[in-house]
Simulated assay, not measured.
Amino acid sequence: TDATVAAHLSSLGLRVAADDVVTSPQAAMRLMRDLVPAGSTLLVIGGEGLVVEVEKAGFVVTRSAEDAPAAVVQGFAPEVGWTQLAEAAYALATPVEEGGIPWVATNTDWTIPQARGIAPGNGTLVSAVHTAVGRLATIAGKPERPIFDEAVTRTGATNPLFIGDRLDTDIQGARAAEMASLLVLTGIDRPKQVLAAPPSQRPDFIVADLRELFGPYPSTTVKGERTRVGDAVVEIDGVDLR
């Protein structure tokens, strides 16, 4: 929940209230309001954080496809397993073109960093349902625009900087939303991935860790095929990078 995230950030020494936090479940509810009538019953595939946002938005929560939900909303939780994914598949069995109900996923992160290593993320769970029903979810979270638009609306930001550790969600989403982006190299993607990134996933700024936010960013100069960033120099020589 937003309160849980705020509490965690506060424990790290930041001044954060729940109202300062924008989550993908909140963005999903913003989408859902345009898809189904107010007060509709939603099949919730996810954890308590998603349930809280569904109820705050005025919808009714069900865990069973037999309750004829008006839509399915799917988010990540470690406890999500076959039983919940099967309920989603049952509810989404009818194709959209034949009157099937909407399906909104909070995000499609393929992986999430954990203390013991990299683990499967919500994208793998959404993909499992997609494989079963042959249709695609509407995505509320990164890299789609709804969560970025929600953040700008909530904060009133006029010149936002989006900070993230993934090129395919954080940076790609920020660029699509026309925001400046900063990649921090302490998460999923590292310099090797940055060098291979397509234009749609190239950040405006790169830092080794968040401590560098408090210092000046090194100046960048480009002369022909040579680029200097601080003390580092890179030169393109044909197909080689020196």
Rank of each mutant, 00 (worst) to 15 (best):
R228G: 10
F59E: 12
I163Y: 09
S40N: 00
V229T: 13
Q172M: 14
P102Q: 09
L42P: 05
E66A: 15
G173T: 06
I112V: 13
Q172K: 15
P78S: 02
D149E: 15
S40W: 09
T23S: 09
D189A: 06
G117T: 01
P199A: 12
A115V: 11
V233D: 01
E66K: 15
E48C: 12
V54K: 08
E144L: 03
R190L: 12
V5L: 07
D168Q: 05
A71V: 04
P69V: 07
R228S: 10
T94V: 15
A57W: 02
V234K: 05
V80K: 08
W82G: 11
K223R: 15
N122I: 02
P218K: 01
R135N: 11
T4F: 07
L42D: 09
T62C: 05
D240S: 14
V21Q: 02
V222Y: 05
E98H: 15
V207E: 05
A77I: 03
G141K: 11
D209A: 07
A7G: 06
N159V: 12
G117S: 10
A3N: 05
P102N: 09
A115C: 05
S64W: 09
T41Y: 04
T155E: 07
P102Y: 03
K192P: 01
M29H: 02
L213C: 08
A71I: 06
A197N: 02
A176C: 10
E178R: 14
T41K: 14
L167D: 07
Q84Y: 03
P216G: 05
V184F: 09
E55N: 06
V60Q: 13
V229H: 08
V194Y: 04
G187R: 07
V21N: 11
L35E: 03
L241W: 10
V61M: 02
S200W: 11
A137T: 05
L161A: 06
R33G: 07
V233Q: 10
D109H: 02
E144Y: 09
V129S: 01
P203S: 01
L241Q: 00
S11C: 00
I118W: 08
G230K: 10
S40T: 04
M32K: 05
V52W: 08
G47H: 00
E212V: 07
I163S: 10
Q172H: 12
L85P: 04
L210Y: 13
A3Q: 14
T1Y: 13
P120S: 02
V229Q: 09
T186G: 11
V207I: 15
V73C: 09
L241C: 08
T124H: 03
A89I: 10
G173H: 02
V133Y: 05
M29T: 03
E235M: 02
A57Q: 01
L195H: 11
A208I: 04
Q201P: 02
D67L: 07
Q201L: 07
I147K: 09
T186E: 06
G123F: 01
E87P: 01
W82A: 13
Q26I: 01
A17N: 14
